[in-house]
Design a protein around this nucleic acid. Structure first.
Lengths: 192, 192
DNA sequence: CCTACCGATCGGTAGG
DNA sequence: CCTACCGATCGGTAGG
């Protein structure tokens, strides 16, 4: 395993993720993908077993990163406010590192085959960790008494859409974006 | 035009929108759709010209509602804070009325043919109206001095994801949801 | 990595 | 509304 050279399989998966973001998994053909990689369609099958395997590679690794990350944040010996900021920062970093994969994660997971259950379990676990952080925040009076599901899905809604506009704001620095998002999501946009 | 009876074309488009949300436009075949409607695939073509026309019907009407709505909100003789609340309320109402169509609007617009330019124009106009409201809010010191694009896309991110969880919270009353979202998006989730 | 090819299925049409 | 059908293209395999 070299660190600076991509294997052919990795190259295929990265190229595929970019195409999946543009047109969605179902509309991307193996011939589209092959042309983009620079080989014939049949040659792809020397590196991957099926189209579905590519989707699995693209989605499951990211999903694992998210779930492992938030678990660490939840269990860490930090204040709730810091945990919330860490969750936001994690989303920015993972999304900026792989905006194409995030598109598949959000929109194409239903086309997973065997891997679908694993993905759904990871997503449930992620949401549950997030919910526990929110519950703790409400119990400590750090968070307002707003419906926990509204807080969860409102915040997640913003974070899950980052993949759509992070690529458009290439000039935006991560740390500045994280600060702005923390302020917006945690303290709101209105003056007090 | 009867108001209580759906035309066959409307029935086809509504059924299609539901399937598009489940699997995405590209993965839904005309035979899937026909089976759900209860006819043979060839019979669909007595009511619609093509698969693409169905997508156009599903997406463009909603996009027009959003853009016309926010234009009215922007031009109304109301305070900025009320305008922001009205934008949130509009999203809740339009999404609750048609959660399936919202999925296509968000995820399948790239498969529009002729209608794509119109859709993109409507979306740009929508975002521009929203931006102007935000600018006004910042000028009047109603909104904090946060990057305007962050406010825009953070708020829109949450609102554009409503279609995913409104159907799961059938018990949630619209007015209560609107109140919670206004509080969360405008004033934040943290106690002060 | 390629050429050649396969069965299945796609969106859509002809004709009644 | 149906049966019958079409050319194109799909994901994938055989064999070198």
């Amino acid at each position: 395993m070299k660190s600076t050279t991509l294997t052919r399989k990795q190259e295929i998966c990265i190229t595929a993720a970019r195409l999946f973001k543009q047109k969605g998994y179902s509309a991307v053909t193996m011939r589209d993908l092959a042309a983009e990689v620079g080989v014939k369609a049949a040659s792809l099958y020397n590196h991957i077993a099926s189209k579905e395997e590519i989707l699995n590679e693209v989605i499951v690794n990211i999903a694992e990163s998210f779930t492992e990350g938030i678990q660490g944040i939840r269990l860490a010996d930090t204040k709730v406010a810091e945990k919330l900021e860490a969750v936001i920062a994690q989303h920015v970093h993972l999304t900026a590192d792989n905006p194409y994969g995030m598109a598949s994660l959000n929109n194409d997971w239903m086309h997973l085959g065997e891997g679908k259950e694993k993905y759904l379990a990871l997503r449930s676990a992620y949401e549950q960790h997030f919910r526990e952080i929110i519950k703790k925040g409400k119990a400590q009076n750090v968070l307002k008494d707003i419906d926990e599901e509204v807080i969860l899905f409102s915040t997640l809604g913003t974070l899950r859409n980052l993949y759509l506009w992070i690529p458009k704001k290439a000039d935006l620095q991560r740390s500045k974006l994280i600060d702005s998002l923390c302020e917006t999501l945690l303290n709101g946009v209105k003056t007090t």
